[in-house]
Amino acid sequence: MKRAQHSHFIMQVTSTDEKISKQKHRLQRKNTLIAYSFIAPNFLGFFIFTLIPVVFSFVLAFMSWDSFSTPKFVGLDNFSKMIHDTTFWISFKNTFLYTIGVVPFTLLISLGLAILLNKKLAGVKFFRTAFFFPYVTSLVAIAVVWNMLFHPTMGPINQFLRMFIANPPGWTTSSQWALTAIVIVSIWRFMGYYMILYLAGLQSIPKELYEAASMDGANKWQQFKNVTLPSLRPTTFFVTIMLVINCFKIFDLVQVMTDGGPGRATNVLVYEIYNEAFVKFNFGYASAIAFVLFVIVLGVTIIQFGWNKRQEKA
């Protein structure tokens, strides 16, 4: 009888154990459901309108689809067409030149502005707002006003330049200078944004480093060279990567200022994607060019990722 009681007791214990684990299980499931309910509203929209198109875009690059016919798998045809497409290469070259023009100057100017503003001065906020302002203003408005400033005969820029040279450039109307004009406006527009990133970087440098350096008798320039610049290396790297990626995605400024012209002088990659997809309705071929853009951006991102990993290890 005692044994029976004992075994009964054991049975009871296991059953409560089971109950607890079952309860725990149920709780966990309930918890997961609650978590899903938090995520679902965003995830559904994200899944349908971003994730599916992203996946589909890779497939589309290997298809021929002129919008009205049925899509057909064509393997690498789009890419071999691209190799012989001079317009594609011109757009590629222009995007590359644009990037080369924008990145170093934006980097230097935004760093310079950040250093000037990284002081405890009355009114610093006002100056920060002023430099940042071009970045938040609507693109069409600034493109339009710059087009007027760049007007080859009547524009204030050329009126100013005529005081020094007889024949100032035709800017947006000249195939030689149009890209330069867009580069200038881009630098002006982006510098405030990267200045903010640099300011954040500067403010994270410990003050003790400067104190130690000045105790060692380092002057301002030496402090800048030996403390500021090395400490800013991660920021500079990040800013460069962001700049390169954003330069490769340039479209709106080009579309409004020059519409890719004169001729094909400012035709850039995204402009070419737009043109093939939504003007000529070559969805497949446009997706192949879009794929090239993706590969470039991915490549740059991977470089950044690898660099970050190395930094973490060091």
Binding site: F46, V54, I245
Partner: peptide, 24 residues
């Protein structure tokens, strides 16, 4: 895994998947 999907698409430029979106 779910969050990785979000992160993954941040790196993809909108211009490279705007065409499937448009077809949709």
């Amino acid at each position: 895994t779910l969050f990785l999907m979000y992160i993954g698409t941040i790196a993809v430029p909108w211009q490279s998947y705007m065409i499937p979106q448009f077809i949709m």
